[in-house]
Amino acid sequence: MFTDFIDGPFWTFSVSVFAIGVIWRLISIIRLGVPGDLAVPREDGGAGGMRTILSRFMARPAVRKRALLIVVAGYMFHVGLFALLFFAQPHIDFYVDRFGVPAWAGMPRWLFILTAEIAFAGLIMAWLYRVMHPVTRMLSGIGEHTASWLVFFVMLTGCLALLEQYDSLRVLHFFLAELLLIYFPFSSLMHTFTFAFSRNYTGATMGRRGVDA
């Protein structure tokens, strides 16, 4: 009964909240508008925006050497999570089943396990940094901690579900993922989408000035 609910109506509900919520958040940002820039540009703002969207995937050396731990943890978590979400075979099978998309090649199981461990370690390192470093400890609020813990439990139950011994672990993983989907649009997890906007705005402004931001 509970499994059917989680696999059925609750999935539909959570994915709808996610989709509608994300679109609503993005529209609510865009509709605020940005004042035009009347200063004669040196370079094209569009190119600057695109450049910054891409270049900020790499941490600048100036900050990399000062905050190595959080930079490394950030890469471990984000790259690992991306690989897990889109190249873990159980996830690919899920997308094919739920969305009817054609299948694509997944990671071998050993790489999947390794990636999960890297992502997990990255998340734990980032969270420890958040609670131990005086700056992040001061900045972090309930939103950051809720997001961290939700992601942590989704990943933990995902790892446990890998054992494939109990369907209840898969259902628990799925249920937590659905909670995460519901929470997502109303949290700082929105940076998954809005980072492109913020990088673009900054990159375009600075690009017009001839600065590679």
């Binding site: 865009i30 950030g74 700056v135 940076h191």
Partner: peptide
């Protein structure tokens, strides 16, 4: 002052604290 730039900035901030290092 709240424009799309500022709204996207606050929506994106994950309080990583890297700005303090700069």
């Amino acid at each position: 002052k709240m424009d799309a730039r500022i709204a996207s900035y606050f929506s994106s901030c994950v309080h990583c604290g890297l700005c303090a290092e700069a």
